[in-house]
Amino acid sequence: MILLRKFYYGDYGESKLGSSSDNETSSSPSGAGGEWPLWEVFIRSKQGLDHKHAGSLHAVDAAMAIENARDVYTRRMEGVSIWVVESKHIHASNPDDAGALYDPANDKAYRHPTFYNLPDAVKHM
């Protein structure tokens, strides 16, 4: 087993050097019965462009998610429109299937225009 003891910025390992000497680990850290749901945030950076994934945040409902997204992800005019969707509603392809799903496109060069050699005399094509 490899023992990692490299120190990073803001990272001094998990030694017993804890700044609170007492070990008061509460079982219910929130004390409020669970976290707010997680939302994914998509931002349109300007009119005419697609919304693009920007990150995620916690909020109780869509309205709060949009308000929070505005503060967290658009403090410097990064966007003109925000989409939010609760993370649990996102369905994703399985990375293990990546080979089967995407590799077959590799040997179909004929789908690209550069596959075809035409005489120079042909213009505007």
């Binding site: 001094y12 609170s20 008061e24 929130s30």
Partner: peptide
């Protein structure tokens, strides 16, 4: 919440 808990209990630096 786990991360906050680690901060508050001093487990995380």
């Amino acid at each position: 919440d786990e991360m906050y808990d680690q901060l508050h209990t001093g487990k995380a630096k």
